[in-house]
Amino acid sequence: METLETLFRSFETGIRSAKALKPKQYLKSIGLEYSDLRIGFNSGQFHHRKTLESKEAFEMLGVITKSDAGVRDESFTAYTVFGRYGLIFPLLDSNSRIVNFFALRFDLDKKKQEYLNSEGIYPAYPHPLTKKLYLAPTVIDCASLMQSRVLDQREAVMALHDGELLEQHLEAIKSLNELEVIIIFKR
Protein backbone atom coordinates (compact mmCIF):
# COMPACT_ATOMS: atom_id res chain seq x y z
CA MET A 1 0.00 0.00 0.00
CA GLU A 2 1.30 3.43 -0.94
CA THR A 3 1.41 5.93 1.92
CA LEU A 4 2.69 9.46 2.36
CA GLU A 5 5.46 7.96 4.53
CA THR A 6 6.78 5.64 1.80
CA LEU A 7 6.38 8.33 -0.83
CA PHE A 8 8.36 10.82 1.25
CA ARG A 9 11.19 8.31 1.65
CA SER A 10 11.40 8.20 -2.15
CA PHE A 11 11.55 12.03 -2.20
CA GLU A 12 14.39 11.93 0.35
CA THR A 13 16.22 9.55 -1.97
CA GLY A 14 15.47 11.92 -4.84
CA ILE A 15 17.18 14.91 -3.20
CA ARG A 16 20.30 12.80 -2.67
CA SER A 17 20.45 11.83 -6.35
CA ALA A 18 23.42 13.04 -8.38
CA LYS A 19 20.89 14.38 -10.92
CA ALA A 20 19.19 16.66 -8.37
CA LEU A 21 21.59 19.57 -8.98
CA LYS A 22 19.02 22.37 -9.27
CA PRO A 23 17.19 21.48 -6.03
CA LYS A 24 20.48 21.32 -4.14
CA GLN A 25 21.61 24.65 -5.61
CA TYR A 26 18.31 26.27 -4.69
CA LEU A 27 18.49 24.96 -1.12
CA LYS A 28 22.02 26.29 -0.82
CA SER A 29 20.86 29.70 -2.10
CA ILE A 30 18.27 29.95 0.69
CA GLY A 31 20.62 28.59 3.36
CA LEU A 32 19.00 25.19 3.93
CA GLU A 33 20.82 21.86 4.03
CA TYR A 34 18.85 18.73 3.16
CA SER A 35 21.19 16.55 5.24
CA ASP A 36 20.18 18.47 8.41
CA LEU A 37 16.44 18.70 7.77
CA ARG A 38 13.79 16.38 6.38
CA ILE A 39 13.54 17.68 2.84
CA GLY A 40 12.79 15.70 -0.28
CA PHE A 41 12.66 16.36 -3.99
CA ASN A 42 9.72 15.36 -6.18
CA SER A 43 10.86 14.98 -9.78
CA GLY A 44 7.24 14.22 -10.69
CA GLN A 45 8.00 10.67 -11.81
CA PHE A 46 7.21 8.64 -8.70
CA HIS A 47 4.13 7.11 -10.33
CA HIS A 48 5.91 6.05 -13.53
CA ARG A 49 6.20 2.29 -14.04
CA LYS A 50 3.85 1.68 -11.09
CA THR A 51 0.93 -0.72 -11.05
CA LEU A 52 -2.63 0.46 -11.54
CA GLU A 53 -3.26 -0.32 -7.85
CA SER A 54 -0.37 1.95 -6.81
CA LYS A 55 -1.63 4.75 -9.05
CA GLU A 56 -5.11 4.40 -7.54
CA ALA A 57 -3.55 4.61 -4.06
CA PHE A 58 -1.65 7.76 -5.09
CA GLU A 59 -4.94 9.23 -6.36
CA MET A 60 -6.59 8.44 -3.01
CA LEU A 61 -3.71 10.24 -1.25
CA GLY A 62 -4.24 13.24 -3.54
CA VAL A 63 -0.69 13.31 -4.91
CA ILE A 64 -1.80 12.60 -8.49
CA THR A 65 -4.97 13.42 -10.38
CA LYS A 66 -6.03 12.25 -13.82
CA SER A 67 -5.39 14.83 -16.51
CA ASP A 68 -6.80 15.34 -20.00
CA ALA A 69 -3.32 16.10 -21.34
CA GLY A 70 -2.47 14.28 -24.53
CA VAL A 71 -0.44 11.06 -24.41
CA ARG A 72 1.37 9.36 -27.27
CA ASP A 73 -0.01 5.93 -26.41
CA GLU A 74 -3.79 5.74 -25.85
CA SER A 75 -3.31 2.92 -23.33
CA PHE A 76 -1.58 5.40 -20.94
CA THR A 77 -3.31 7.84 -18.59
CA ALA A 78 -1.91 11.33 -18.07
CA TYR A 79 -1.65 12.62 -14.50
CA THR A 80 -1.08 15.96 -12.84
CA VAL A 81 1.41 15.51 -9.99
CA PHE A 82 1.30 17.47 -6.71
CA GLY A 83 4.50 19.44 -6.15
CA ARG A 84 6.08 18.34 -9.44
CA TYR A 85 9.74 19.35 -9.62
CA GLY A 86 9.58 20.79 -6.13
CA LEU A 87 11.13 20.56 -2.71
CA ILE A 88 8.89 18.57 -0.37
CA PHE A 89 8.60 19.04 3.40
CA PRO A 90 6.55 16.59 5.53
CA LEU A 91 3.89 17.73 8.00
CA LEU A 92 3.13 15.39 10.89
CA ASP A 93 0.14 14.54 13.04
CA SER A 94 0.22 14.21 16.83
CA ASN A 95 1.43 10.59 16.42
CA SER A 96 4.42 11.71 14.27
CA ARG A 97 2.95 10.26 11.07
CA ILE A 98 3.23 12.17 7.79
CA VAL A 99 -0.25 13.43 6.91
CA ASN A 100 0.54 16.31 4.55
CA PHE A 101 3.21 17.74 2.28
CA PHE A 102 4.34 21.30 1.70
CA ALA A 103 5.83 21.77 -1.77
CA LEU A 104 8.04 24.62 -2.91
CA ARG A 105 8.17 24.62 -6.70
CA PHE A 106 11.28 26.74 -7.14
CA ASP A 107 11.94 26.24 -10.87
CA LEU A 108 8.91 28.11 -12.23
CA ASP A 109 8.83 31.69 -13.54
CA LYS A 110 7.20 32.58 -10.23
CA LYS A 111 7.90 30.26 -7.27
CA LYS A 112 4.82 28.40 -6.11
CA GLN A 113 4.16 27.11 -2.59
CA GLU A 114 1.35 24.64 -1.99
CA TYR A 115 0.03 22.19 0.57
CA LEU A 116 -1.43 18.82 -0.27
CA ASN A 117 -4.17 19.37 2.35
CA SER A 118 -4.75 21.28 5.60
CA GLU A 119 -3.60 18.60 8.05
CA GLY A 120 -0.48 18.30 10.21
CA ILE A 121 2.24 20.51 11.62
CA TYR A 122 5.73 21.26 10.35
CA PRO A 123 8.20 20.11 11.58
CA ALA A 124 6.22 18.17 14.22
CA TYR A 125 4.06 18.63 17.28
CA PRO A 126 6.24 20.21 19.98
CA HIS A 127 7.36 18.15 22.97
CA PRO A 128 4.88 18.50 25.89
CA LEU A 129 7.60 19.98 28.14
CA THR A 130 8.31 22.87 25.73
CA LYS A 131 8.72 26.17 27.61
CA LYS A 132 9.26 28.57 24.69
CA LEU A 133 7.41 28.17 21.39
CA TYR A 134 8.18 30.05 18.19
CA LEU A 135 5.50 30.37 15.53
CA ALA A 136 6.95 30.94 12.07
CA PRO A 137 4.72 32.24 9.24
CA THR A 138 5.88 29.65 6.68
CA VAL A 139 7.51 26.26 6.43
CA ILE A 140 10.63 27.85 4.90
CA ASP A 141 10.90 30.35 7.80
CA CYS A 142 10.51 27.46 10.25
CA ALA A 143 13.16 25.37 8.48
CA SER A 144 15.51 28.37 8.48
CA LEU A 145 15.10 28.79 12.24
CA MET A 146 15.76 25.08 12.80
CA GLN A 147 18.79 25.20 10.49
CA SER A 148 20.24 28.13 12.46
CA ARG A 149 20.55 25.90 15.56
CA VAL A 150 19.51 28.72 17.90
CA LEU A 151 16.82 26.69 19.63
CA ASP A 152 17.76 25.57 23.12
CA GLN A 153 16.41 22.61 25.03
CA ARG A 154 12.72 23.00 25.80
CA GLU A 155 12.27 25.40 22.88
CA ALA A 156 10.31 24.45 19.78
CA VAL A 157 9.10 25.95 16.53
CA MET A 158 5.97 25.36 14.46
CA ALA A 159 5.17 26.67 11.01
CA LEU A 160 1.79 28.27 10.52
CA HIS A 161 -0.22 27.18 7.49
CA ASP A 162 0.39 30.04 5.05
CA GLY A 163 0.55 32.40 8.02
CA GLU A 164 -2.68 31.02 9.46
CA LEU A 165 -3.14 29.46 12.90
CA LEU A 166 -5.23 26.32 12.41
CA GLU A 167 -7.03 24.03 14.82
CA GLN A 168 -4.10 21.59 14.97
CA HIS A 169 -1.79 24.44 16.06
CA LEU A 170 -4.18 25.37 18.87
CA GLU A 171 -4.42 21.70 19.89
CA ALA A 172 -0.61 21.46 20.00
CA ILE A 173 -0.30 24.67 22.05
CA LYS A 174 -2.92 23.50 24.55
CA SER A 175 -0.96 20.28 25.08
CA LEU A 176 2.17 22.17 26.24
CA ASN A 177 1.94 21.84 30.03
CA GLU A 178 4.98 24.00 30.84
CA LEU A 179 4.66 26.65 28.14
CA GLU A 180 5.86 30.06 29.39
CA VAL A 181 6.06 32.15 26.23
CA ILE A 182 5.01 32.14 22.58
CA ILE A 183 7.03 34.20 20.12
CA ILE A 184 5.31 34.96 16.82
CA PHE A 185 7.38 35.91 13.77
CA LYS A 186 5.68 38.21 11.30
CA ARG A 187 6.61 38.80 7.70
Rank of each mutant, 00 (worst) to 15 (best):
V139T: 05
R187E: 14
E155G: 02
T138H: 01
K28G: 04
G14R: 09
E74A: 15
E2W: 06
F102L: 04
T138D: 10
I183Q: 10
Q25N: 13
D36G: 04
D93H: 08
L91A: 13
N117F: 05
K132H: 08
T138A: 06
K186I: 15
V63R: 02
L170R: 12
Y122F: 15
Q113L: 06
Q153A: 13
A136T: 09
K174C: 13
L166K: 13
L21K: 15
F76S: 09
S144T: 14
I182H: 01
Q45K: 14
S67Q: 03
R97T: 11
S118E: 13
L92R: 14
T51M: 06
I184G: 05
L151K: 09
Q113Y: 04
E59R: 10
I15A: 03
T6V: 10
S96F: 08
L160K: 04
D152G: 12
R72N: 11
L116M: 05
H47Y: 11
S67T: 08
L21W: 02
Q25E: 15
E2M: 15
L7A: 07
G40N: 05
F102K: 00
E5V: 12
R84K: 15
K112C: 05
K112A: 09
S144G: 08
Q25K: 14
P123G: 07
L27R: 02
G120W: 02
N177I: 14
P23I: 13
V157I: 11
M1H: 07
Q25W: 07
E114R: 02
D141Q: 08
L179G: 05
G120D: 03
A18N: 05
L133P: 00
E119N: 11
I183V: 15
L165E: 06
A69M: 07
L151H: 08
E74F: 07
P23G: 02
L135A: 07
F8R: 04
R72A: 11
S75F: 11
R154H: 13
Q113H: 07
Q113P: 00
D141L: 01
H161D: 13
D68N: 12
F41K: 03
G40I: 04
I182K: 03
H161T: 09
P90V: 10
T77G: 01
D162L: 11
R105F: 05
R49Q: 13
R97S: 14
G44M: 04
E74D: 11
E2A: 10
